[in-house]
Each structure stands twice: as structure tokens, then as C-alpha cells.
Amino acid sequence: MSETNVAEMTFEEAMKELEQVVGRLERGDVALDESITLYERGAALKKRCEAKLKEAEEKVAAITLDGQGQPVGTTPVEGL
């Protein structure tokens, strides 16, 4: 398990670690205390992935298209 601050992770980093956490929890070969710690880390990683996906969706939705459907720029999305 990484010591990287979840808030600083890219989507890919968070998703990869989340998959590792889920795998360890599914195997069931960790002590209860460690399971709780893993679950908490997994919840934070899931939240980070969701936030990064929402951010990407908002950026895509903000792309302006010209008359032929070609992107001509982006419109700033509030909060990004």
C-alpha cells in the first residue's frame, strides 16, 4: 500500500492502488485492524477516482464545437 497522499494522486494511480486494496480485502488474509485501515484507504481512493472522473466529464462537456462539429476551444468550467 502506497504512502502517497490520496489528494495528490492521479486517477490512474488511485485506481491501481484501489484495485490492490480490494484484492487484499477479498483474499481475507489480513488482520481485522489492517482490514479497517485498508477499507478506510480504499474509501478515500474511491472518492478520489470519482472526483477525477467528474472533473474530466465537466471538461469534456465544456468543449465548444463549430458548425461542422469540430472542437474550437473550451469554455471554463466553474470551480476548475
Rank of each mutant, 00 (worst) to 15 (best):
T75W: 02
E13G: 01
V21E: 12
A7K: 15
K52E: 12
V72Y: 03
E58C: 07
E19D: 14
Q70E: 15
E78L: 02
L53H: 02
M9K: 03
A61R: 06
A43C: 11
K16M: 11
G28Q: 09
I63F: 03
G23C: 09
S35G: 09
A43S: 13
E19I: 12
E13H: 04
E3Y: 06
D29A: 13
Q20E: 14
P71W: 03
K16D: 13
G67C: 14
F11V: 01
V60K: 12
T4N: 08
A56Y: 11
R24P: 06
T74C: 09
R41M: 00
A62S: 06
T75N: 07
V6G: 02
M1K: 11
Q68S: 15
E57Q: 11
C49L: 01
A51H: 02
Y39T: 14
P76D: 00
A14T: 06
T37H: 10
L25C: 07
K47M: 06
A7Y: 11
K47P: 05
A61T: 10
K54T: 08
L53P: 03
N5W: 07
K54H: 09
E13W: 03
R48P: 04
E8F: 09
L38S: 02
P76A: 01
R24F: 12
G23V: 00
T4I: 02
E78K: 07
N5T: 13
A61S: 09
K16S: 14
Q70W: 13
V72K: 09
R48V: 05
A43E: 14
V21D: 12
A56V: 13
D33G: 08
T4E: 07
D66R: 02
L32W: 13
Q70A: 12
D29Y: 13
G28E: 09
A56T: 15
